[in-house]
Design a binder for these strands. Structure first.
Length: 377
RNA sequence: GGGCGCGUCGCAUAGCGGCAAUUGCAUCUGGCUGUAGACCAGACGCCUUUAUGGCUACGGGGGUUCGAGUCCCUCCGCGCCCA
């Protein structure tokens, strides 16, 4: 993989770049749709291409559980398995340490939505999994068997899956973890990072993952320590504060320290309205489940905000999802029709909404690239 | 004409003497940011000083009982069977 910086903004840390991989070039900043189980739910790979997607991210933990990396390897890798010709990333499973661990225990996402008195303190363990020095003992949600994933295991699985860019196995920490817990977790993530680098034999690009939660000293330490390691790029993960300002500030701490020449991927963040400040903080790629996830809940993202197509009022609305959008869904279908299909419990509206949302997200980043090119950002 | 069965929140269901009353659908309102979830949570008789509060409620009327959606009588409506 090669990363080329085409332009650096004079107004901010925003940058325009090219990420070249064996499966093609990604123009950055780029949005990366989430294909957890080697599919963008409801769409074929051909349709995903038509949304303007440049790169997808699949998930090591989920693909390891099902169908297992051997099956994928037997197809010659994930690209041919899912018939996706363009670049691919795999997430390491580090997020599942959180989402199936403390995230589940406390019903919390990685963005603190409401203050609570609950705290995760040093040496505390989640209920459903066990975090040790060597990795994490998960329990499969499919058959209940124990599944162990550590830095070595994750890398070996990711090599078998065969994405262009893979991530180091990390622990994504919770917004309610205290400084002590976050620091210990961070040091372990750093030790795991070394093991990942040592384990990898393939020529895939490997990104280290910066952690450190909401704590400036830890974020900076993480960026500094990982930044000196021989990674091809960096993921920025973990919790992201409790409002957009603190999220943005947190990114500056990190991009201040990370080597400028290497690509940065912000893990799991990216509503439309987040894109500009993320780019301004120096983020090159980012993934987010929002467009696909919300689509299956009947929500369209539009230039006027979110639109809930399940609301009965939509049944009489003959406008397209977004009057400013030129995707095939907006050219050919009305809100009324999509509302009808949702109420009739048909599966097609989930596809139409997924397509539109992805198209809209990809259009928005394309516009962002234009804005950087034209010096607006 | 005779026999039997059934009428409970928009629809469908539970209930077999302590009930403003189960569940599903529908409806409404929230939530969702490296995806286990076409998901999750809440509301859904009316009123208010939102309360271990008041009122009105299980087809209509009457009765038994401290207490009835639940038992009895009767009427109305619906269904099935026999003539």
């Amino acid at each position: 993989m090669r990363f080329t910086l085409l332009k650096k903004s004079k107004k901010s840390r925003a940058r325009l770049g090219l990420l070249e991989t064996a499966h093609g070039v990604v123009e950055t900043p780029a949005f990366v749709p989430v294909a957890t189980q080697a599919v963008i739910k409801t769409l074929t790979s051909e349709e995903v291409l038509q949304t303007g997607a440049q790169m997808l991210i699949a998930n090591t933990f989920h693909l390891h559980l099902r169908p297992g990396e051997k099956i994928i390897k037997s197809h010659g890798g994930i690209h041919s398995f899912m018939n996706w010709p363009k670049p691919l990333m795999t997430d390491s499973g580090g997020f599942q340490v959180f989402s199936l661990g403390f995230g589940k225990d406390f019903g919390q996402g990685k963005i603190l939505k409401q203050r609570s008195n609950e705290k995760i303190e040093s040496d505390q363990q989640p209920k459903l999994l066990k975090i040790t020095e060597d990795g994490v003992a998960f329990r499969s949600y499919i058959d209940g068997r124990e599944v162990f994933l550590g830095p070595k295991e994750s890398i070996k699985i990711q090599e078998a899956i065969g994405a262009d860019i893979i991530f180091a196995f990390d622990e994504c920490t919770s917004p309610i973890a205290d400084h002590d817990y976050t620091k210990k977790s961070l040091l372990k993530t750093h030790r795991w990072a070394e093991i990942c680098l040592k384990t990898k034999k393939s020529d895939q690009a490997l990104y280290g993952v910066v952690q450190g939660g909401k704590f400036q000293d830890l974020r900076e330490e993480s960026a500094r320590v990982l930044g000196k390691m021989d990674f091809n790029g960096f993921g920025i993960g973990g919790e992201f504060g409790d409002d957009k300002k603190s999220m943005s500030r947190m990114l500056y701490w990190v991009t201040d320290v990370l080597p400028e020449s290497k690509p940065r991927h912000l893990l799991g963040i990216g509503y439309i309205e987040d894109m500009p400040w993320m780019a301004q903080a120096g983020i090159d790629t980012f993934d987010c489940i929002a467009p696909t996830h919300y689509a299956r809940r009947g929500i369209a993202f539009t230039s006027k905000g979110r639109l809930d197509l399940a609301k009965s009022a939509m049944l009489k609305d003959k406008k397209p999802l977004d009057t400013a959008c030129d995707c095939f869904v907006c050219r050919n279908y009305t809100r009324s029709y999509i509302c009808h299909l949702l109420k009739a419990w048909e599966i097609t509206p989930l596809k139409l909404l997924t397509f539109h949302n992805l198209h809209y997200f990809n259009q928005s980043v394309a516009q962002l690239r234009e804005d950087i090119k034209n010096g607006k950002i």
